Simulated scan of single mutants.
Amino acid sequence: MIRNRTFERRETTPAEREARKAFREVIPGKAMTDYAKAQKSFHENRERLKAERLAREAKARARSSSD
């Protein structure tokens, strides 16, 4: 037997509305937190590599000027 399946909207309960509201607020914040962590890590790594490069260049200049 085939039933007529119509999609009816059911009323959400106050608890469901509160849960949706809570999750809607948390999820975008988490994404930004992950983005901020990635950006911080990237900038720290870039600064570390820059310091290493400057140290190598200074060492090379000191070696070439002492020869």
Rank of each mutant, 00 (worst) to 15 (best):
M1F: 13
M1A: 12
M1V: 12
M1S: 03
I2Y: 06
I2W: 03
I2T: 09
I2A: 15
N4C: 07
N4F: 13
N4A: 11
N4I: 12
R5H: 09
R5E: 08
T6H: 07
T6N: 11
T6K: 13
F7N: 14
F7M: 13
F7I: 13
E8F: 05
E8G: 06
E8Y: 04
R9D: 08
R9H: 07
R9C: 00
E11L: 03
T13I: 05
T13R: 05
P14T: 01
P14F: 02
P14H: 01
A15K: 07
A15Y: 04
A15H: 06
E16L: 04
R17G: 02
E18L: 15
A19L: 13
R20P: 00
R20H: 09
R20K: 10
R20N: 10
K21I: 02
K21H: 14
A22I: 09
A22F: 06
A22D: 06
R24F: 09
E25L: 15
E25G: 06
V26Q: 14
V26N: 03
V26S: 07
I27K: 15
P28L: 02
G29Q: 09
G29Y: 02
G29E: 05
G29W: 04
K30F: 02
K30H: 06
K30Q: 09
A31T: 15
A31W: 02
M32P: 00
T33R: 14
T33M: 04
D34C: 06
D34L: 12
Y35R: 14
Y35F: 11
K37V: 07
K37N: 10
K37G: 02
K37F: 01
Q39T: 12
K40T: 11
F42L: 08
F42S: 05
F42H: 12
H43L: 12
H43V: 00
H43Y: 15
N45V: 09
N45Q: 11
R46S: 04
E47M: 06
E47S: 09
L49Y: 11
L49A: 10
L49W: 02
K50F: 04
K50Y: 00
K50N: 10
K50M: 05
A51I: 07
A51M: 04
E52M: 11
E52A: 08
R53Y: 02
R53P: 01
L54Y: 05
L54F: 09
A55G: 05
R56T: 07
R56P: 02
E57M: 08
E57T: 03
E57K: 08
E57R: 06
A58M: 10
A58E: 13
K59V: 02
A60V: 03
R61C: 00
A62G: 02
A62P: 00
R63D: 03
R63N: 00
S64G: 08
S65A: 14
S65E: 09
S65P: 01
D67K: 15
D67G: 10
